[in-house]
Design a protein around this nucleic acid. Sequence first.
DNA 1: CTCATTTCGTTAGGTACCAAACAAATATGT
DNA 2: ACATATTTGTTTGGTACCTAACGAAATGAG
Lengths: 148, 148
Amino acid sequence: MSGTEVSSVSGWAKRCFFAGRALMDKTLRPHDLGSTQWYVLWQLATNGPTAQRDLVRILDLERATLSGVVATLVRKGLVDQSASGKDQRQRTLQLTEAGKKLWSELPDLHFIQDAAFSGIDPADLAIAIRVLQTATGRLQDLLGKGTE
Amino acid sequence: MSGTEVSSVSGWAKRCFFAGRALMDKTLRPHDLGSTQWYVLWQLATNGPTAQRDLVRILDLERATLSGVVATLVRKGLVDQSASGKDQRQRTLQLTEAGKKLWSELPDLHFIQDAAFSGIDPADLAIAIRVLQTATGRLQDLLGKGTE
DNA sequence: CTCATTTCGTTAGGTACCAAACAAATATGT
DNA sequence: ACATATTTGTTTGGTACCTAACGAAATGAG
């Protein structure tokens, strides 16, 4: 963010988000995996096969964005994308054997959240979340208004 | 962010940042301008001609990223990029006439910050900033360590 | 049943971000 | 002076994000 916003919430939201993502990317780079790709694998490893359209909601992405990420994972042979029986529009995603193997070798990323927020007063964390949540809600309202 | 982080600070930092940027992008779209392009024009309009290498620090971007954004603005004829006399490596950026004209026609984006944060207890804002700032600092420390 | 609508995924085109590697110009150390 | 950094900007290749537009399949209303 620019100079005017140096001390603003939105400026720090950006910096914080990018710093966290950079650390995630750096940790995953040796495994040739991006952060959003990791989230997809995480979902499939943790909750089993998932419909692509549900993943859109779970990961809070646009259909088009997820489509690209999934294509990359399929190309790498980590994920299987198959038409799901009943509804021929939907795709079901699941880990391949290679995907399971890679997942088992991946480092635990929990240290990132820990490093960032451990030791901070939980009351302060709650306030920070409330502020960000409020601001996000208002912004999304404004975004919606124009579209309707 | 994924389901596990639904209530985390980092998850909301991401959402808040993207919501703000989306509103900015939507407002600027009729003028065929991206958010980071706007920040560059803002700097040049507000503080006059600026060295590209300083802009890297002011906007907190990588050299490579700024290089691309500037190339786009030059291609659009909004910004002039010239070698700056003394040091033949450096480039100085300034608005062209077309750039000045466009800037004068652009809507005021202040309403975005206002909409997001007005009416929120300043003490809470300060806490949110402190939390994000602390987390960012710790993450950047961790990022740095690996590189040294 | 049929036509209009909605849902789901993809494609095309664009922005913004990064790391790594390169070239050119300048600065530094001996 | 001269070889070795360091700084500045670009290029290349990759990720992640968006909108708009499209096609195919399913759903709904008449």
